Simulated assay, not measured.
Amino acid sequence: MNLKMIVQDLGPITLLGGGAATQEQLHAAMGIAPVAVAADGGAQLALTHGVDVRAVIGDFDSISEDVRAAVPAENLHHIPEQDSTDFEKCLARIKAPLILGVGFAGGRMDHQMAACNALVRAAHQRCVLLGSDDLIFLAPPSLRLDLPEGARVSLFPLGAVEGVSDGLEWPIQGLNFAPDRQISTSNRALGPVFLSMTAPKMLVMVAPEHLEMVVASLLAAPNWGR
């Protein structure tokens, strides 16, 4: 099903969610992606920090009347269906080379798990979630990460997937990954890391200090497409 795009931009976009987020995370994202969109209750985060949003997208069950009144009516996009999360609604209606999600990797665990699930379900979107301890993103078909020796690289599958690696302390080739079987959390970089995956099912987690490098790496990597 082809959905009408609500926001289109040639540069990365910051997407604000209603979960826990810090001023530092928002500043880091907006420094790379100054165009902002809010997913439903993420409009409160935008209002709190004085961020103008190009659009607010969602079913509007988490946005207060005061916040709605503060957003121009033409920027409010009500999507009433309940078969997807507000994050998924945004991912399906934003066209940009990359999305930086703030307010999706903190707070309620069910919301965090749903956001990770959405990264896999919308594999065509390059998207990085910013958390207090992690950057979380879906591994593309192949990826080079210019990490320093000793940097943590956690790999967590959300489905059956295999891969190969170069530059990890514990290589992954020959392993059959799945959420209820093999995972590879707390792996470590020996230096620059190369990853290749057979399917869009593997989440990668590295420290937030590597945000600019991760963004550059994902923009240079091939995409899974639709």
Rank of each mutant, 00 (worst) to 15 (best):
S154K: 00
H27C: 13
I94T: 00
E162C: 14
K89P: 07
N176C: 15
S217I: 01
F87E: 06
L129C: 02
L47W: 13
L47D: 10
A73R: 04
L143P: 09
A160V: 10
C127D: 01
L45G: 11
R144H: 13
E209W: 04
P97M: 05
A38E: 05
K201V: 06
K201C: 15
L175I: 11
I79P: 12
P97K: 00
I99L: 15
I6K: 00
A38H: 04
R181D: 14
L129F: 12
F87L: 15
V102Y: 05
P12M: 05
S184L: 05
G106Y: 12
A38N: 06
A160T: 09
L119G: 03
P34Y: 15
D134I: 01
F194I: 02
A122I: 05
D180R: 15
L15T: 01
L218P: 01
A92L: 13
A69Q: 11
G103P: 02
T14K: 13
A36M: 14
N75C: 14
M197E: 05
W224R: 06
Q82Y: 09
S142Q: 14
G31I: 06
D86K: 03
V7Q: 06
V128A: 01
L119V: 05
L47E: 15
R126A: 02
G106A: 07
A38K: 06
V204C: 08
G167C: 05
G131S: 10
N187T: 02
S165C: 04
P80Y: 11
E74T: 05
L143H: 03
P171I: 00
T85Y: 12
A38T: 03
E212C: 10
G50F: 04
L175H: 09
Q173G: 07
M5V: 08
R93Y: 03
M202A: 07
G159P: 09
L135H: 01
L98N: 00
G191N: 09
N223P: 08
H49F: 14
